[in-house]
Simulated assay, not measured.
Amino acid sequence: MDLTPYVDTLRRELAVAATAGGDDARALAERLTAPLESAARLTLLDALSAAMGEVTRELAPGSVDVRLRGSEPEFVVTAPHAPEPFRKAREPVAAPAAPAPPPPPAEADDGTMARINLRLPAQLKTRTEEAAAAEGLSVNAWLVRAVSLALDGGERAGPQGHGKDPAGRSLTGWVH
C-alpha cells in the first residue's frame, strides 16, 4: 500500500492552514513538512496496524498482518485452515456391519425441528466427523444421538427398543 498520497494530502493541508498565518507561518510550515513526513508515515502505520488487529480479532482463527516492504506497508492475509474431508483408511474387507440405528427422538417429540449453530474447534470437528463416519451416520445424526444420550444419562428412548428382559439379557431391536 502506497502511503505517499496520504502524506502529500497532509502536506497540502498544512500549507493551506499556514497561508492563513502569513508569510512567516507559510515558511515555517515548509520547513516542518520534511521532518513531519516520517512522523506521518509512522502514525499511519500505527493506525493500519491497530485496524488490522481489530480485523484479525473478527477473523479468528484467520489473521491479517501489516508488514513493511521498504517504506511501504503490505497486508498479509492468513485464512483459517479448512479441514480436510474425511477419508477413511483402507481396511481389510470384513462382513458388512449392521447399519447404525437412527438417533432417538427427543422427549415429547412433536415432529418439529429446530436449527442451531454449533462452533467447534477444528480438531473436535474432525474427530466428530470421523466418529460419525465410523458409525455410518451423518454428523447431524451423530450429534443428535450424542446430545440425547448425554441428556438421558446413557439411556436411549424412542422407537428403538433397548433394555433387558426379565432374565437380565440385553434386548435390542425395533418396536412397531
Rank of each mutant, 00 (worst) to 15 (best):
D2C: 07
A34W: 00
T126Q: 14
E130W: 13
A39D: 13
T43E: 11
A134T: 05
P85K: 01
A82C: 10
E54N: 09
V64N: 00
Q123P: 02
L59G: 00
A18K: 06
L137M: 15
D110F: 03
A51S: 11
V66P: 02
H81N: 08
A79R: 14
A134G: 10
S38F: 02
Y6A: 07
D8T: 08
E107N: 12
L137K: 08
L151E: 06
A94R: 14
R69E: 14
K88T: 11
A51F: 02
M1C: 01
W142C: 00
M52W: 05
G136A: 03
A106N: 15
D8R: 11
G161K: 05
A131S: 12
T19M: 10
L3P: 01
V7P: 02
L68K: 02
T33A: 15
E135C: 11
L143H: 09
P166M: 01
H176K: 13
V77R: 12
L44K: 07
V7M: 01
A29W: 01
V139M: 01
G173N: 07
L10F: 15
A82G: 10
S148I: 00
K88D: 08
G22S: 13
A100M: 12
G62R: 04
G161H: 05
A131K: 03
T4K: 08
S71N: 13
P35Q: 03
P96S: 11
T33E: 14
D110Y: 02
G173P: 03
R169M: 06
M52Q: 09
A39T: 03
A60Y: 13
A100N: 10
P96R: 11
V147D: 02
E129F: 00
P73V: 10
A131N: 03
L42N: 13
L59D: 10
T172M: 02
L120I: 00
A20I: 14
T78A: 04
A51Q: 12
P73W: 07
L137C: 08
M113W: 14
P96T: 07
R41Q: 14
H176P: 06
T126I: 10
L118I: 14
A40S: 09
A47Q: 13
D24W: 09
E72W: 04
E58L: 15
W174Y: 11
G70C: 00
T4V: 04
G53R: 04
E74W: 05
R156N: 05
R31D: 08
E72Y: 06
V7N: 01
P73S: 10
